[in-house]
């Protein structure tokens, strides 16, 4: 079992012929994700060559538009690798075509674009993950995005994180210790994103296969504090958390647009305190997840 994606997910790739899109489409097909279509305007009718997990050729048909791709293939999820200037339109194109899950990998999307996109996807009941996120993976079933497949293994832990490579680090430590994952979700570090911690916690709480959750947050905003209260009030499953940016000086941007300490809200200390008060186990180092999760799975 898993959340948001599983072995039946029918994925289409927006920007399939671009540098990142083509590289990661090959990786997704090789992992076993059912990539049913690609979209690149002007390349409709061509085929994208990829190789499946069985080593056999698994070509992906390319379409000019998302709506024609959905009509022809029944795709129900989309992953976006287009340049930042086109990302907002790509998300809305997928939502308008009736795709239920949209994962936007693109980094550098202007935040004002997202103020237009967010109500558009919400009104259509679409789940958007990202932008500026690594996507998600349900080990052994499906991977949508750029999370390296080989660092994951199936198991009972749900993982949710605002960062990309930090997610890999924690998942890698868990896998090395023999602790597998139901689904690993990277929600992205931008100020306005489609899916937040609470959306993921809710899904993990409902998923019968998930027995514990690992959550990685960072400085800036109050999403982690809100998530902590949600865990206290609505979750029976144990949660372990980590906050990156304890050594960050106030008011400095640290790469993620989201990671700004503004005023008193959003410091690492504040977030860690919220975790502690709401019964969330606190990992001081990424490696600490291993022991803390182990203890909670017993």
């Amino acid at each position: 079992m898993s959340v948001f994606i599983n072995r039946d997910t029918r994925l289409l790739v927006q920007g399939i012929t671009g540098r990142d899109g083509s590289f990661h489409t090959k990786q997704m097909v090789e992992y076993g994700t059912r990539v049913v279509a690609g979209v690149t305007p002007g390349k409709g009718g061509q085929q994208f060559d990829a190789v499946g997990p069985d080593g056999k050729a698994a070509g992906v048909p390319i379409f000019n538009t998302v709506s024609s791709a959905v009509q022809a293939t029944g795709a129900n999820a989309s992953v976006i690798y287009v340049p930042p200037a086109f990302a907002a339109d790509a998300i809305m194109e997928a939502a308008a075509a009736g795709v239920a899950l949209i994962v936007c990998i693109t980094e550098g999307v202007p935040v004002l674009d997202m103020t237009r996109v967010y109500p558009f996807v919400k009104e259509r009941g679409v789940r958007l993950l990202g932008p500026n996120c690594p996507g998600l993976i349900s080990p052994g079933e499906s991977k949508v995005g750029i999370i390296p497949g080989r660092i994951c293994t199936p198991g009972p832990v749900g993982v949710v994180s605002r960062s990309g490579t930090l997610t890999y680090e924690v998942v890698y430590q868990l896998t090395r210790a023999g602790i597998g994952q139901t689904t690993c979700v990277g929600i992205g570090g931008d100020p306005i994103n489609g899916t937040n911690f609470i959306d993921c916690l809710e899904a993990f709480e409902r998923d019968p296969a998930t027995k514990a959750v690992a959550m990685m947050g960072e400085i800036g905003g109050t999403d982690e504090q809100d998530a902590a209260r949600y865990v206290r009030d609505h979750m029976k499953k144990p949660v372990v958390g980590f906050i990156a940016g304890q050594t960050a000086p106030p008011g400095r941007r640290m790469g993620h647009a989201g990671a700004i300490i503004s005023g008193s809200a959003g410091t690492a200390a504040e977030k860690i305190e919220a975790f502690e008060q709401c019964g969330i186990g606190v990992a001081r180092r990424p490696i600490d997840f291993v022991e803390l999760i182990k203890a909670r799975l017993k």
Partner: peptide, 29 residues
């Protein structure tokens, strides 16, 4: 590489008694 891991690395330097000289994210690709 990556802002989150960069911050976690700085935090770990501090955890083991050192002090980071900088934040530097070389990004993806």
């Amino acid at each position: 590489n990556g802002a989150g891991l960069a911050m976690a690395t700085m935090d770990l330097v501090k955890y083991y008694g050192g002090e980071p000289a900088n934040f530097l994210d070389i990004g993806g690709s």
